[in-house]
Amino acid sequence: MPGAPAAGEMLQQLINAIVFGSVLTLFALGLSLAWGTLDVLNLAHGAVFIFAGYLTYELTRQGALSFVPALIVSMVGAGAATVALEVLAFRFIRTRFANKRQAELSMLVASIGGAIIIDQVVSNETGATTFGPPSSIFKVREYHLTGSAGITNIQILIVVVAVLAAVGLDQWVRRSRQGRAVRAVAYDPVTSGLLGVNVSFVAISTMFVAGALAGLAGVLLAVNLRAEEVAVGQDYLLTAFAILIVGGVGSVRGAVLAAYLIAIAETAVVAYGPTQWRDGIAFLLILLVLLVRPQGLFAKAQFQRA
């Protein structure tokens, strides 16, 4: 049947897009959370993402830890690194700059500094070369579907974890007491503080969750890719900006939908178009959205915040 291979290939590319969208979702959720609630455009998010992959590599290469404990420790490590940035830099900037724009710009620059430091640490420890956790920590197996299409167990895990993380974060921000505090701080930190919200704690816990989400994505990607280098995090950061702008800053649901939209668009270009234009897709979408709906496709107003 001549059409069968094409159908199988199409299904495979759809699966590829869903897996890619799931990685982007995990990556973008943390960035969106920090930006949407604390106005921190954390350019160190990509470095934290790779830092988690590096931690897993270090924790597993001598057989010290198995996959799940290494994942948890790496997520905590990534969260701690982000909290360190909040405590050492962002918090001071927030309190010292009355002008919001100045504060945002200063935090942007501070996060670049954080990214350089984290990248340099990883680079020094890995000899600035390729690294990845040993294949023995997670035996990757492929399950054949129809035709030539298949999906691996790590890909299934990525999709499931991304969906759970997105739903969990959405519900946490919308329904939990802590989530309401996050939204209140996002809306007006000064008034929130006057009303009894511990703004400092909210900021630290939010940054920890953002970092841990980057860590979760970083570890799963490291296992899926098998090999990483420091620059990998920066590439995801670029696509994540597109996701946030297309989805609407601070909108969890928007970020998820935008992540899958961009993943499908980029995969389609690779599969059926000029492959080298893949990265251009994200920027084209940014441009279109900025022209047509500057607040993002899924933001109902300037302030949606989850």
Binding site: E9, A231, Q234, D235, A271, T275, R278
Partner: peptide, 20 residues
């Protein structure tokens, strides 16, 4: 023959294409 930027980090779709 697929040309991709050296910064590419998502390879599933490319691998599918390479196997055709």
């Amino acid at each position: 023959s697929v040309g991709i930027p050296s910064t590419t980090t998502e390879f599933s779709s490319i691998v599918t294409k390479l196997e055709t």
